[in-house]
């Protein structure tokens, strides 16, 4: 879906649902996941339909993911961190449970 214009020099390593992801320092979590070929970030709470990032500027809230120790956040507005453990949200709203 996307490719990087430059190779990653010093990768930041993180996990999404137990899949290892190599990110570039300074990437947003959403950019890192998209670049790694992840397109489904969560399920819509009502129908369970699969969803992924749409706007990339913090407005649509389609990129919600759950980070260990941080709760549910917008992946497009969260910077990657070494060793981050990321999951599809398990029934929380953003801001809940920190």
């Amino acid at each position: 879906m996307y490719r990087r214009s430059a190779a990653i020099a010093e990768p930041v390593i993180l996990w999404f649902e137990d899949r290892k992801i190599m990110a570039a320092p300074g990437d947003s979590l959403a950019a890192a996941l998209l670049a790694a070929g992840v397109s489904v970030f969560r399920r819509a709470p009502v129908s369970g339909a699969k969803r992924g990032p749409f706007c990339m500027i913090g407005n649509c809230f389609e990129c919600l993911v759950e980070i260990d120790g941080q709760g549910v956040v917008q992946a497009c507005s969260t910077e990657v961190r070494q060793g981050m453990r990321v999951y599809m949200p398990r029934g929380q709203s953003p801001g809940e449970g920190d």
Partner: peptide
């Protein structure tokens, strides 16, 4: 935005 922030090309 993906291009500007992370150099991602479709």
């Amino acid at each position: 935005t993906l291009l500007k922030t992370s150099g991602l090309m479709p």
